[in-house]
């Protein structure tokens, strides 16, 4: 397991040193959310009603932008092959990379969401729920996105293809993420049920993501 933490620490250090990627994702998130009132009109009632959906969909798109980077750099400089010859099973190595993606991209995006909620007139009472829901839901985005990143590593038009492969997989997270926030702002469904299911989806992706990604990587180093 020590190799797991070594790899995680290196990926986070690289994010800090090379910078840029997180800032780009946050900037994209901000712009997409800011485009909504411009497209739909500045009706505050309408905006506060659609705020949970807008915040989640924009977050998915922003996270999608950063997914190809998970394996790209390591593949280009040969690190991926050396990682494959380590003691650490490739499943855990890919899990470490997904965890690094979640810490460096998922958490910052989730923390930016309440600020963007201000722009959409989201009810103040919904803020703690918004952050909690996104922190619980975003691991699924990193770990399911990991599969897409691994599958499209050697593909032509990789980035576009990645979106096509991964977005349908995000539908359950999207539905229950929005349902949980809506429940907290007086929506029809129970908060607890949606929140627990959201957590279950994330746990499920924690298992299936690294296994599928490791299989895909193995096929491609050959």
């Amino acid at each position: 397991m020590s190799g797991f933490w070594t790899l995680l620490k290196r990926d986070l250090l690289l994010q800090v040193r090379e910078g840029g990627a997180v800032g780009t994702a946050l900037g994209f998130y901000l712009i997409v959310v800011a485009m909504m009132p411009l497209g739909l009109g500045p009706d505050l009632n309408l905006l506060s009603r659609i705020a949970p959906g807008v915040l989640w969909i924009a977050l998915l798109l922003a996270a999608l932008l950063s997914l190809p980077r998970i394996f790209e750099a390591d593949d280009e400089d040969g690190s991926l092959e050396v990682i494959a010859t380590g003691d650490l099973p490739l499943e855990l190595a890919t899990a470490a990379k997904a965890l690094a993606h979640w810490i460096s991209t998922g958490i910052p995006l989730a923390l930016l969401a309440p600020v963007l909620g201000l722009l959409l007139n989201l009810e103040l009472s919904a803020y703690p729920v918004l952050v909690a829901t996104m922190l619980v839901g975003t691991p699924a985005i990193s770990f399911l996105g990991l599969v897409g990143a691994a599958l499209t590593l050697r593909a032509r038009r990789g980035g576009l293809l990645l979106a096509l492969l991964v977005l349908p997989l995000y539908i359950p997270t999207l539905i229950f993420g929005i349902a949980a926030i809506s429940a907290a702002t007086g929506g029809p469904s129970g908060f607890q049920a949606s929140f627990l299911i959201l957590g279950a989806i994330s746990l499920f992706s924690l298992v299936i993501g690294p296994v599928a990604a490791a299989a895909a990587i193995r096929f491609q180093t050959q």
């Binding site: 290196r10 090379e18 750099a73 280009e76 400089d77 040969g78 092959e81 050396v82 010859t85 003691d87």
Partner: peptide, 18 residues
Amino acid sequence: LPAQAHYIGHLNALKPSL
């Protein structure tokens, strides 16, 4: 076996920012 071997390929596996 791979975990008992060093593999030096054509690429250097170095990170430019480290």
